[in-house]
Design a protein around this nucleic acid. Structure first.
Lengths: 213, 213
DNA sequence: CTTGACAATGGACAATTGTTCACCTATATA
DNA sequence: TATATAGGTGAACAATTGTCCATTGTCAAG
């Protein structure tokens, strides 16, 4: 998608914020006033540009009817005070050694907020999300690009875990049979990799998957 | 608060749901059309009553500017200028026939809150989640029990949509080739079902999948 | 130098949309 | 019986609002 110009971004932001604050969309003349334009057509030009770039939709001829489209993702959000039931978790592209005792902000590529009850999380304290790379878990229906919610705790046999292998965090199935040492297994029948592990390398257990379509 | 009459409740419900699924408020004449009134004044009377009972507010003279007061409903957290936009969306177990004209609160089985930017949603209010039943979308990596985030809007070729088939909401792939009527397709090679559709039966487009592990 | 984008002015016009007045029919209530 | 409230028709009017025309200027790319 094409980039927005500064002015176009300003207009778009105002429209969004106006709707947020007031509960309804602005009229063309309200936008005009906000920016001090002396003609409504200044606004029209920007709206046409925004429509052409497909970040915005309108119903021709109808008042205050906008629709905003943004697949892009800027800015790291902060948690609203009153959102009690919501987990606010960092999304890690990779988790460096030392986590969870020491968070590496460099690994954080975004934040994700999900309701605890519906996702079945027990604790919100050190939960984080991990963006999946590769196809090692496709047989568990987890695909490249998915975000996996991880809860740091001991793994049981059969859990999907985030584990540190060669300094990189990967997603694997944790297998622990009675009387045997535990190991990790990739869930992809074409690459049936097995990894021996030390307990310490397991970062946590996967609790949920989130995928944008 | 005074009780609403049946008619007033119907009007209020329509206004709310029009906004919810379209993203903007209805005009007086759109309300008139929906109820088959032969005069806009019929609507005006109801609006005055609703304003007097303080369930509704309007900006005099301005088009499509409503504000609805619902002490019972979960309030949308008011957003300071730079705060995060968290989506608060109903999770529907099923969306009964007749939706969106008539919401079935019974269909709501929970609520889900996800940060807009990280999930790529465009508008918070109209969005809802749908719990998947069955295996009709397994080839699109969507499985029984998953929650799918739906955004009501027109579908493009290739979109995964929530559609009304035989009074039940199902998830299907929307196919629309130039010069041909659109149809729906189940994404399961073992059940390659095809469905003809009317535009009206498409509830919205799937934007994300959330799965608890 | 020309071309195309972006940004904006100024004015006019037409469609959408809210508002109001007069009037009608019920139904319940004091 | 009066009288208020809810619900509605019909038509006209006015304000809001979207749209379009012609024009100006800047700036970067070809």
């Amino acid at each position: 998608m094409k980039e927005l110009t500064t002015r176009q971004q300003e207009i778009l932001t105002f429209i969004e914020h106006h709707e947020w604050r007031n509960g309804y969309w602005p009229s063309i003349r309200e936008i005009q006033d906000k920016f001090g334009f002396k003609s409504t057509n200044a606004v029209m030009g920007h709206l046409r540009a925004l429509e052409k770039k497909e970040v915005l939709e309108r119903i021709p001829g109808q008042a205050r009817t906008f629709r905003i489209n943004r697949p892009d993702a800027p800015e790291i959000p902060s948690m609203p005070e009153d959102a009690t039931e919501v987990v606010d978790i960092p999304v890690m592209g990779d988790i460096a050694a030392g986590y969870p005792d020491r968070v590496e902000p460099a690994g954080e590529i975004g934040r994700l907020q999900i309701d605890i009850q519906n996702a079945g999380f027990s604790s919100r304290r050190r939960t984080f999300a991990l963006q999946v790379r590769g196809e090692s878990m496709v047989d568990a229906e987890i695909y490249d690009g998915d975000m996996v919610i991880i809860e740091p705790r001991d793994a049981k046999d059969g859990d999907i875990v985030a584990a540190l292998i060669d300094g990189e965090t990967t997603l694997k199935r944790y297998i622990k049979k009675a009387g045997e040492p535990p190991y990790l297994k990739a869930e992809n029948k074409f690459y049936p990799e097995l990894y021996p592990i030390s307990e310490l390398s397991v970062q946590g257990v996967a609790k949920a998957v989130v995928r944008s379509l």
